[in-house]
């Protein structure tokens, strides 16, 4: 099996071969210019072959609320249903050394022989906002290989905004009595997530109070623009309950999206991806040359988005043309 051939690599990724999935991820993470053309080819092919029923789930929340244990149980639940699961776990990098500790893998209990479960840890690098810079690239591999894709990030505030531009459903996990998230939501710093989980709800009294607080905020904010009313789920990773209700809530949200705006949402997310690539490279200069962010977004939306690199190059080309004429 020659995984150096893009066609073979693609076929094996689609078949769920973990060696191929790992190799594809290694390639997509690679920043050497020599790899660009292979990366282009692979992402285009992967995008054409994304699994039709896939569900992209973002799980975020402050450190220590029990996200990993929850994900562990959720993954187990999906595997028992016969659905394959891919997990990306993003941890922050040290700004001084560039190093990172990726410790979540140890907390997700899994069987190494399970061919339908794949976990990859990523360091966020210099990229702000909670996701690793190459997470979007890598997602294309997961979307072609697995039914359920879970991205785990740490944080309160900014990361939810960014993760919402990547996944279909955003889950925010808090623990009883955590006031920060509530304050952020009230102040509008943080968007209201699709699903709120109160983990460690075995602390019954405090959990009940937190639930009332969160409901107040959620009801006050009303429906989001798609018409979805945030759902609140209680769970206890310790006592082992609540993850099935979370799975149900996720499934409800997904059905809701399918009946309303899933296509549009994914389209917008892809537009954001291309915008991000462009911004990473050319920053304010690029945006202003093309008439500002909203104008760029409009242009991208008019492209065929299957190959983001193609869109990126079109933007770049146009930017240079305009820049020369100034």
């Amino acid at each position: 099996m020659n995984l150096n051939s893009i066609d073979t690599l693609l076929a094996e990724v689609l078949a769920g071969n973990k060696i191929a999935v790992a190799n594809a991820l290694n390639l997509l993470e690679n920043i050497r210019p020599a790899k660009t053309s292979r990366i282009r080819q692979l992402i285009e092919q992967l995008s054409r072959n994304a699994r039709p029923g896939r569900h992209l789930i973002g799980i975020t929340g402050p450190p220590g609320v029990g996200k990993s244990t929850l994900i562990s149980r959720l993954a187990n639940f999906y595997r028992k249903q016969g659905r394959t699961v891919g997990i990306i776990s993003v941890d922050p990098s040290s700004c001084r050394s560039g190093g990172a500790l990726l410790g979540d893998r140890a907390r997700i209990i899994h069987d190494p022989g399970d061919s339908g479960l794949f976990i990859r840890s990523m360091a966020a690098g210099k990229h702000l906002g909670g996701l690793a810079w190459r997470t979007r690239h890598c997602l294309t591999v997961f979307e072609a290989a697995y039914d359920i894709i879970i991205i785990e990030t740490v944080g309160v505030g900014q990361s939810e905004t960014e993760i919402a531009q990547v996944v279909d459903s955003v889950v925010f996990v808090v623990q009883p009595g955590s006031g920060d998230a509530l304050q952020f939501m009230k102040a509008g710093i943080m968007e209201i997530p699709d699903i709120l989980v109160i983990n460690k709800a075995d602390q019954k009294k405090l959990a009940a109070k937190t639930k009332i607080d969160l409901e107040t905020v959620a009801v006050y904010s009303g429906f989001d623009e798609s018409g979805w009313q945030s759902e609140i789920v209680m769970a206890s990773a310790l006592e082992g309950w609540g993850h099935d209700q979370l799975a149900q809530a996720l499934s409800d949200h997904f059905s809701f999206l399918e009946n309303t705006c899933l296509k549009k949402k994914r389209h917008l997310n892809r537009v954001q991806w291309i915008l991000m690539m462009f911004k990473e490279r050319f920053g304010m200069f690029g945006l202003e040359t093309l008439g500002g962010e909203s104008s760029v977004l409009k242009q991208i939306a008019g492209f065929d988005l299957t190959n983001p690199f193609y869109c990126f190059e079109k933007l770049t080309h146009e930017m240079w043309t305009l820049a020369k004429n100034v």
Partner: peptide
């Protein structure tokens, strides 16, 4: 230490089978 000098460290912890170690090395690249 590895993190402090700038490596990305996947720390797997204790009680691992040889299969688990090899599988993690693969999945994590």
């Amino acid at each position: 230490k590895a993190k402090d000098v700038g490596m990305e460290v996947v720390y797997e912890g204790i009680r691992l089978t040889p299969e688990q170690i090899a599988e993690s090395a693969l999945q994590e690249g």
